[in-house]
Design a protein around this nucleic acid. Structure first.
Length: 282
DNA sequence: TTTCCTGTTAGTGT
DNA sequence: AACACTAACAGGAA
């Protein structure tokens, strides 16, 4: 569930559940997905839960931070003492048992609640870092697109710094703008009526403005709908995010454009599936 | 059965 | 600078 809106959704739900709780035990079933000394967070109280780019930052009272990246299929599932699920994406309708074979890390809190880290493909990780290491990790990370500091003027100047890049790849470059992934990049280009393979320095001012507006509005709306879950991954671990039905082009190859009825096309761009309407987008 | 596809990103090579 | 390719891994779809 890994782009900005999904991570933001998890973060918000998680914050409501775990702030103020103390970590009393950690069970690591897959060592390669956990780095750092657990002694730095055991017995410590959680004071903050934040998101930066596609990372979740769980800060302890001693200023150590449990940093989480979900990568492709990572998932955080919170289970309280009544056995009810919170945090992470909503619960599977068929109540897949948790923990299960994809549960690689288990974090126990002082009130008997547990945070499970599940990850089918095992690309994600948790890492205990101090503030200095945190700063180093985010040193090159791009601007937060929903931050007030991300203005049209800033966006325009960022585009000018990568004049020859294709716009969709540019939008996905985490060192330029943080948090946009493969699904929303296609959706943003469609919303702005710009073809994903357009070269940055050919974009008209009006198109730049449309892209800028699309970035903000699509991400905000996706957060409002608690993100998107796609394909088989969903049925395994959580119900579909409600933004699924809002998608206009992603995963709609050969489907008809909702606006002009043209067939949605799929191409490869930067090795990633890229969807667009050949008629609406110029 | 085999091949291709999938929400990410770090590293290397051209 | 920009992009291709690889690697980490599992499983659904064709």
């Amino acid at each position: 569930m890994p782009e900005l809106p999904e991570v933001e959704t998890v973060k918000r739900q998680l914050a409501k559940k775990i702030i103020g709780k103390t970590i009393i035990d950690i069970k690591i079933n897959k060592q390669k997905q956990f780095q750092g000394n657990t002694n730095n967070i055991l017995g410590k109280k959680i004071v903050k839960v934040e998101r930066r780019a596609k990372y979740i930052l769980i800060t302890l009272k001693n200023n150590f931070c449990l940093l989480v990246h979900l990568k492709m299929t990572g998932q955080l599932i919170y289970v309280d003492k009544k056995g009810k699920y919170g945090g992470g994406h909503p619960i599977p309708p068929f109540n897949l048992k948790i923990p299960n074979k994809y549960t690689h890390i288990e974090i126990y809190f002082d009130d008997k609640s547990v945070l499970y880290y599940n990850d089918l493909r095992q690309f994600g990780w948790m890492k205990i870092v101090n503030l200095k290491e945190l700063n180093k990790i985010f040193a090159k990370t791009g601007i937060e697109p929903l931050d007030g500091k991300f203005t049209l003027a800033i966006f325009t100047s960022l585009l000018a710094k990568k004049p020859k890049s294709k716009i969709k790849l540019f939008l996905m470059d985490q060192n330029v703008i943080a948090g946009i992934g493969n699904i929303y990049a296609s959706e943003i280009c469609f919303s702005a009526k710009v073809l994903p393979m357009r070269i940055n320095n050919t974009l008209l001012n009006k198109e730049i403005k449309n892209l800028y507006i699309a970035i903000k509005s699509i991400l905000q709306k996706a957060i409002k709908y608690q993100g998107t879950s796609a394909n088989d991954y969903v049925t395994l671990q959580g119900i579909a995010g409600k933004y699924d039905k809002m998608l206009k082009v992603y995963n709609r190859k050969d489907g008809l454009c909702y606006y002009c009825k043209s067939k949605i096309k799929k191409i490869k761009l930067g090795q990633r599936g890229t969807y667009f309407c050949p008629n609406c987008q110029k």
